[in-house]
Design a protein around this nucleic acid. Structure first.
Lengths: 150, 150
DNA sequence: CAAAATTAAATTGTACGCAAGTAAATTGCG
DNA sequence: CGCAATTTACTTGCGTACAATTTAATTTTG
């Protein structure tokens, strides 16, 4: 028992979270490279594939990213032809993101990504589910806090 | 059941890992700001506080960071006076990092960080322990893979 | 022993990630 | 209505992250 125990790397929860997150993303890279997508672009496309149309604010809430991060990502995805960006007619402040035909086509190609990544995470189904549940519980708490402070 | 289920954000484990990791780090920021440390500098100092002396390679292994990230971080910590950087006399390729007296003094000030962060992660002790165990299991697997490919 | 291979850290280039500030549109309040 | 407050996205600046390359030192090998 040491005065400084609370400052040991091994006693943090945040550090393994941070490290595992990065290591997984690093393992996505070779597969994503084949589609010329970054991880951030990939999860952004996931939301747009599902929604068909979504504005930047809602996209940011889903992804826990702000417009400072999303604006350049979305401009790149537009440049690649996967999405269209246009101002809402009802509210000119809001920017709507639409999926394009090329974006839809990419979705089929992207199906190989989860397939190839499958073997990468070697934990049991039970551990997976327990972790998933705890993580979303934490995210929900954070969302509430974020709402409260706003 | 949808052909594209595997591409839904909510079916990924990586996304909540990535989001929770960032949200926690964001909550560290106000506390770390008071010590003029970033999160990366903070976890780097954690390892150096424990080791007293460590080279960049070993530091990188502990933190899952490469010299491309660590070199600028370590130069900043040196500039702030918390560490000293000097080449090993046995092996001139290797750079040893030493804690300074100011660095040791910072350690006492940093004790408030884990204390203040305590309330930030609102999950049960059991969930904490289960997640901790699973995360380190994954990190160990990744380490093995990283060894193997090298 | 000398050339080749390996290792360690630094450098370069690209892409986030976020706080803070800006500009334009909209809402709300007196 | 008209102005202040709010909201939305964009921009700027700083600090990571990481792949790929470079440079120097060390080790391995023929």
């Amino acid at each position: 028992m040491d005065k400084y125990d609370s400052l040991k790397l091994e006693n943090q929860l945040c550090f393994p979270l941070y490290a595992v997150s990065k290591e997984i993303i690093r393992r996505y890279k070779p597969f994503l490279d084949e589609l010329d997508l970054t991880y951030t672009q990939y999860i952004t496309m996931m939301v747009i594939w599902e929604a068909k149309c979504i504005n930047v604010r809602d996209l940011g809430h889903r992804l826990y990213l702000d417009s400072g991060t999303l604006t350049p990502v979305l401009k790149k995805l537009e440049k690649k032809g996967y999405i269209a960006r246009c101002r809402s007619t009802e509210d000119e402040r809001s920017l709507n993101i639409y999926i394009t035909e090329e974006g839809e086509a990419l979705r089929d190609q992207a199906l190989i990504i989860p397939q190839k990544m499958g073997g990468c995470i070697s934990i049991s189904q039970a551990d997976f589910e327990a972790m998933y549940r705890t993580l979303y519980q934490m995210l929900d708490n954070f969302s509430e806090e974020n709402e409260a402070e706003a």
